[in-house]
Simulated assay, not measured.
Amino acid sequence: MKVFIQFACICFIYMSSNVFAADSEGKFAAKGAGRKACEDFVVSFQQKDSEFLLYAGWLEGYLSAYNQFQKNNYDIAPWQTTELFLILLQRHCSENSNVKFLDATNTMIRAFYPIRLDSEGAIVKVQVGDATAYYYKEILLRAKTRLKKMGFYPKEISGDKFTDEDIKAFSNYQQKFNLKVTGLPDQNTLTTLFLKANPNKSFTD
């Protein structure tokens, strides 16, 4: 959770106008959950009511549409789950209750844009014990490259597979920075690698 709170602060530094523009004045008609106020989303998030599922579905559809129509972009969320996005949006909306859910989402998209996947890539299966996950080869390579620069890899790296050496590198990183040690490039781990400037600094600072 500390990871999510810190990223929420980083994410919304990039507050700006809407990502999409439809008419000559940059206006367009929002539909569904996009028309809701942030304060409404926060209530649904806390209660986990039926409306909450509508927000989640709307968000996934919106991101898919963004992937389809945004130039130089294949996947705006190449490793992030819908759950992560919703947690970040809840944090922002709690502090900006008068903002529309659509505007909050666009702000988050702008923050993620620099670390998007700009073209289709191969998928790599990652298995650690009984846990199995799938990642883009490019994302694995980026994560391993950052770990190597931090001294967690003694040899060359590759994004083609996930070996025992990779498990060791990720586990050591997680242990050093007080993350849950899974050996996987999980949400918390990738968040710190890609979005946290100084892993030694507390997420709540």
Rank of each mutant, 00 (worst) to 15 (best):
V19R: 06
R35Y: 04
A131M: 08
A131T: 14
K180V: 06
R142C: 03
A133E: 12
Y134T: 11
I115K: 13
V3Q: 15
F112I: 02
L195Q: 09
R110E: 07
I13N: 13
A169H: 00
S16D: 15
V181H: 00
T107F: 06
C9Y: 12
I13K: 15
N200I: 08
K36E: 09
F12S: 00
Q90K: 06
L54I: 15
F203I: 08
Q80Y: 02
F28E: 04
D75N: 08
K2C: 13
N188W: 11
D186L: 00
G151T: 05
Q187S: 15
K144S: 03
A104S: 09
N96L: 10
K48D: 13
N72I: 04
K137L: 02
D166I: 09
L53S: 11
K137C: 00
S97F: 06
D130F: 09
L179N: 04
K27C: 09
H92N: 08
I109V: 15
P199M: 08
K161D: 00
V3S: 13
M150P: 08
D130S: 11
L147D: 10
D40M: 04
A104D: 02
K48R: 14
I87K: 14
D130W: 01
E25R: 13
R35S: 10
I109Q: 02
L179D: 08
K144W: 03
K180S: 12
Q6F: 15
C9K: 12
I5E: 14
F52G: 01
D205P: 14
E138W: 00
A77G: 07
A143I: 02
T132M: 08
A197G: 10
V126F: 03
A56K: 11
E25K: 15
Q46F: 03
N172P: 02
G129D: 06
L102H: 13
L89Y: 05
A197V: 07
S202I: 07
Y14N: 05
N96W: 09
K125Q: 14
N106D: 09
K196S: 07
S50E: 07
Q46E: 12
N198R: 04
Q175W: 07
I5A: 15
N72M: 02
K36C: 14
C11M: 10
P185I: 05
